[in-house]
Design a protein around this nucleic acid. Structure first.
Lengths: 111, 111
DNA sequence: TGTTTACTTAGGTATTGACCTAAGTATTCG
DNA sequence: CGAATACTTAGGTCAATACCTAAGTAAACA
């Protein structure tokens, strides 16, 4: 039941400030929808679309109990994105020395 | 002249597979447009839109020399995204550890 | 100088994204 | 039971994204 979380949907989910704020909030603990939505100046249906995107990305799960839906982060779903990013970051920085000469040359006449 | 790179545009730039592939390619060194575009089954103008998004995100810079445009990564532009992600990842795992401890504790007192 | 090369610009389509309002439905409370 | 609460569904707008073709332009080559 552990479906693969492509880096794809995770980056897309995190490309939106509302959704990033939700993740930041949830990193401090689970919350119910109305609680989560409260800080945002947005109609509830709009907010729920963001929640759906986050759930679709696998970063978040929710469960309805009675008339209340509670939301929480799913463990380790950030890992693939973290790994992709840090790998690129490492490769990138490794190349810095070689790049430096090239940059110095390019910056003489940038267009 | 170092403009701030909001996590925003970086995540958006990386949310697309063509652009991620470009970044992966460029992490191995600079390239010219036609070289970069070659692996993609896409019309050149479409590909150039992706290049524009990457340049807009600050991750990449390009310069035209003669009729050829060369493209390279810009140092350290991934940093803000890496930092945001790793911070959340850390908080996330911390929080879940606490939860585990809490549950383990509850289960002890349970019997 | 004419042609090829390497983009570049212009303009078009189709889909997705981010919002909205209005009207549901299902629980819970008094 | 009736009203309030907490979403949920339906449907609509508008902008942005991801692609395309066709027709430029500017170097470089023969």
């Amino acid at each position: 039941m552990v479906q693969v979380q492509p880096v794809e949907v995770v980056f897309h989910a995190l490309a939106n400030p509302t959704r990033r704020a939700m993740v930041e909030r949830l990193a401090r603990g689970p919350a119910i929808v109305s609680e989560l939505a409260e800080p945002f100046d947005m109609a509830l249906p709009s907010f729920l679309q963001h929640l759906k995107v986050l759930e679709g990305s696998g970063l978040v799960q929710s469960k309805k109990v009675g008339r209340v839906r509670s939301v929480r982060l799913v463990p380790d779903r950030l890992a693939p994105a973290v790994h992709w990013l840090t790998k690129q970051h490492r490769l990138w920085e490794q190349r810095l020395d070689q790049l430096d000469a090239y940059i110095a040359n390019m910056e003489k006449e940038d267009d």
